[in-house]
Amino acid sequence: MVTAQTYYIALGSNKGDKFKNLQDAIDFIHVRIGTITRISKVYKSPAFGFDTEESVEDFLNACLVLESHLEPENVLQELLAIETDLGRVRTKRDTYEARTIDLDIILLEDGVVNTETLQVPHPEMQNRRFVLLPLNDIAPKIKHPKLHKEVAFLLEGCVDDSVLEPINIWLKNPSKGYDFSKYNFIAIEGNIGAGKTSLATKIAHDFNAKLILERFADNPFLPKFYNDAARYAFPLEMSFLADRYQQISDDLSQLDLFKDFMVSDYDVFKSLIFSKITLQEDEFKLYRKLFYLMYKDLRKPDLYIYLYQNTARLQENIKKRGRDYEQNIDNDYLEKINSGYLEFLKTQTDFNVKIIDISNKDFMDDRSDYLWVLEEVCGRK
């Protein structure tokens, strides 16, 4: 999974409905580029660098913190496209011009970018109060990677004496609009290669959730099972039964006061689904009896999400992630698992279940698909 980078973006507008221009730009950034974690106050500031003989409206300025998996040049291209979509027309004049929207990358974590089209940190940021003041709202301790000074220190020493006025209207963060408040515990399930771990990890990161991941990689019977299913099915399922019980019991009992909810990439009932497929009938009867003895009092998720992928997409994902012991899984086994899950979910009247078909979605590489999945999971506030 590609690690997201943190960008610090400056926004400005002095043409048309200026506040709406800022909000529209934020909404576009959310959809096209990444997750917005913080937004500053909005400040009214005098136009900077314009011909004094020209009558120019004041600017509205703000800054935001953005997490994105895109590379800096790609973020720049998206920002320029958003400017165009919001009506900005660039000319070849060397002087400053009024604009519906102006979007600039100011900082990139502690990184430096120096290309023909992009310079980060922005070479003039330390000289512009309309950048430093809103940036100080949201990132006062971030250091300039070249000057090695914090934003708060740069603001204090800024020679720009422009007077900025905060306005009493706040920009809305669309990243905060997904409603997870009604859930304390979400379990995400799916077939092998469906993307449940990836989705749980993204939700936990973006929405301040405690992440619970199944520790399947440490199971010594798993590679052996794929080589000789008949011999190793029962010890594999029994080891999973014990491991899942211990892990989920521990994780659900350990509260994290700094997290808003819990999200897991598995539910304990998957043990019944897989064991029914892999075990002989007499083995399964014994296994099911042990399962209900162990799990009868275990907490159920407030929301159970099943990610449905068709078999062809599952095989693509399995090949892509490259685990050696999974490469020979046949289609019939995957189809039995899908059928087992769907049959199980039909009988669970006390579960809050959402089945989401993601066969034609790629929520890891396509942000619009990820936002679509979020809407399916929890809707909007």
Rank of each mutant, 00 (worst) to 15 (best):
Q5N: 11
T6H: 14
K15F: 14
D17R: 08
K20G: 00
N21R: 07
N21Q: 05
L22Y: 09
F28A: 01
I36D: 02
R38T: 06
A47Q: 04
D51Q: 11
E71K: 13
E83Y: 13
V89G: 04
V89K: 13
K92Y: 10
I105A: 02
E109W: 06
E116S: 04
Q119V: 15
P121C: 02
F130D: 00
V131C: 11
L133S: 06
K143I: 05
F153W: 14
V159W: 08
N168C: 15
K172T: 15
D179A: 15
K182E: 03
G193V: 10
S198I: 05
H205G: 05
F221Y: 07
L222C: 06
P223A: 05
N227V: 11
N227M: 13
A230I: 04
F240L: 09
Q254P: 00
F258I: 05
F258H: 10
K259E: 03
V263D: 03
D265V: 00
D267Q: 09
V268W: 03
L286H: 12
L293D: 10
M294C: 04
I305N: 02
I305E: 08
L307P: 09
L314N: 02
N317F: 13
G322C: 10
R323M: 12
D324P: 07
E326V: 03
N331A: 10
D332P: 01
G340F: 14
F344V: 03
T349V: 11
N352T: 09
N360T: 07
M364A: 14
L371P: 01
L374F: 10
